Amino acid sequence: METRSVAKFIRVSPQKARLVARNVTGKHVEDALNVLKFTPKKAARLIEKVLTTAIANAEHNSKLNVDNLYVKEVRIDGGPSWKRIQSRAMGRAYRIIKRSSHITVVVDEL
């Protein structure tokens, strides 16, 4: 029985978060937490937070054994973007796009 946890409107680029998400998909929960703990990226802290929430949901709501859980899926979807303007030389303006993400972590029992 699978359990999931979602964090929405997180201020990290989906492209950068997917780099971290690929490292933990399909791993045992303890191994995934260790990988995220020692990954020096902002997205690793955010995915770790969502993963611990998914583990707690599985333990409390679904009454699953934590020792048998593995990371079935980590999905990073693009959220809304903030559009900003940066002034440049000779009166020009460049657009800066500050992206956000929706992070979904699904854990399942072996």
Rank of each mutant, 00 (worst) to 15 (best):
L64C: 12
I10Q: 12
S81I: 02
E48D: 14
K27A: 10
R84V: 02
V107K: 03
P40G: 05
W82G: 06
A44G: 09
A54M: 04
V66M: 10
H28G: 15
L36D: 10
R45C: 00
E30V: 14
I97G: 01
H28N: 15
S81N: 05
R88C: 01
L46A: 11
V6A: 01
H102R: 15
T104C: 03
F9Q: 12
K42T: 14
H60T: 08
T53W: 00
V74S: 04
K37I: 00
S13I: 02
K72A: 13
K49L: 07
G78R: 12
I103D: 02
V105E: 04
T39L: 09
D77A: 14
A56K: 10
D31H: 13
M90G: 01
R92D: 00
R75H: 11
A56D: 06
R92M: 00
E59L: 11
L36E: 08
T52W: 12
V24S: 07
V106N: 04
R4V: 03
W82F: 13
A56F: 09
K83T: 05
L46N: 04
R84M: 10
E59I: 02
H28A: 14
P14W: 01
R18L: 08
R95I: 01
A21P: 10
Y94H: 02
N23L: 15
I10N: 01
K49G: 10
V20N: 04
I103V: 12
L51M: 07
V50T: 14
E109K: 15
P80R: 14
S5M: 06
D67V: 10
H60Q: 12
F9C: 01
L51S: 09
A17V: 11
I85G: 00
P80Y: 11
N61Q: 13
K63Q: 14
G26D: 13
F9A: 13
E30Y: 04
W82L: 15
V12P: 05
N61A: 13
V74P: 12
S81Q: 03
V29S: 09
K49C: 07
V35Y: 09
A56I: 10
N57Y: 13
P80G: 13
H28E: 15
V106R: 05
G79D: 08
A54I: 02
I55G: 11
K98E: 08
L110W: 00
N65M: 10
D67W: 01
I97L: 05
E59C: 04
S87H: 07
W82H: 13
V35R: 11
S101P: 02
M1W: 04
I76R: 09
E2Y: 00
I55T: 09
H102A: 05
L51Y: 05
Q15F: 07
V107I: 10
T53N: 14
R4W: 03
K37W: 00
V74K: 08
V74H: 04
R22G: 03
F9I: 08
M90Y: 10
I47K: 03
I103W: 00
K42H: 09
V29N: 07
S87I: 05
D108H: 03
T104R: 12
L69Y: 11
L36N: 02
R22Q: 15
Y70M: 12
A44K: 05
D77P: 09
I97N: 06
T3P: 07
I103Q: 02
L19D: 05
V74T: 07
H28D: 15
K63H: 10
L19Y: 11
V35P: 13
D31L: 14
R11W: 01
G91H: 02
A21N: 08
D31Y: 11
T39C: 11
S81H: 07
I47N: 02
L69E: 09
A17Q: 06
T25D: 08
